[in-house]
Design a protein around this nucleic acid. Structure first.
Lengths: 149, 149
DNA sequence: CTAGGTGCAAAAGGTTTGCGGTTAA
DNA sequence: TTAACCGCAAACCTTTTGCACCTAG
């Protein structure tokens, strides 16, 4: 099986499991997310998708992103900004938001984030714990940006 | 000093420190945030503010919320939904998002969230770590909502 | 064949901006 | 006195929706 057909087969299976059809647009959008994992906004996905598929529409990009989130191939990332961003890294990780350049970085975790039972009021039982960090990133332009604040 | 004038004095000082003026609208908006700490959206703040100040405008509510965030009296909370929410609890705490009723709960932390140096790539130095949890809240309508999913 | 997906255009949130008048300091 | 702030309305940006056509299964 070629690399390309394996990509398609895996995407197809995940989509089908959640009752979604496999379409060229969904493959294209998923491909965009996987190829450059920089947490693009829907608009950025739209622009990149048009490179391979000039007639794709914004509404379809939203539809595709929604389907990918629902079938477990992508996650929404909620930044401070208004537009939602998308992440195709489904491994356990957390996000580092650069307060200077606004980029979002994936940070792998060596241990799962834990929330001691003792800290939780009775009957709060989280399914999921997200850790987000804010600070400057190592890019020299940001790391040395102190003066301009 | 009465309770009311102490509230005003503290607000005034925080605003002044960041170069903002003390206005009746800002007092009103801050009062709304402090009185009911349920993480309202800008629109909800607008509605509640109008109870005491019927002529306040939406643009002013945004301006006031922005000033309060900038002078350290409130924080933005980024939910999954589109509208930003606001939190006047400035103590270290984390947020629990009920996946059923969408309410946001403050959870106090007994120890600070920590991120072992070892987990961070070189030169990432977070100023702030946010922990968010998702799951059902203890409200009976949510806690027993499994069937309808 | 047909339910689900697509493209388009219009509408619906949510937030920001420009401007003339008002006000805190 | 005057820079900052207010209210209003229009603009802007992001996301959703309605509809006629198309296509995967």
């Amino acid at each position: 099986m070629t690399e390309k057909s394996r990509f398609d087969a895996e995407l197809n299976e995940k989509l089908a499991t959640s009752g979604f059809r496999f379409t060229a647009q969904r493959r294209n959008v998923y491909n965009v997310l996987v190829n450059k994992r920089d947490h693009p906004t829907a608009e950025e996905v739209f622009i990149r998708s048009k490179a391979d598929m000039p007639d794709i529409s914004m509404a379809t990009v939203y539809n595709c992103l929604d389907a990918l989130v629902k079938c477990g191939l992508a996650k929404q990332v909620n930044h401070d900004s208004t537009a939602k961003r998308f992440c195709s890294n489904m491994q356990e990780h957390c996000h580092y938001y650069c307060t200077d350049c606004n980029r979002v970085f994936d940070i792998d975790l060596k241990e799962s984030p834990r929330m001691p039972e003792a800290d939780l009021p009775e009957n709060f039982k989280p399914d999921q714990i997200d850790v987000a960090m804010r600070g400057r990133c190592p890019d020299p332009a940001c790391a040395t940006a102190g003066a301009k604040d």
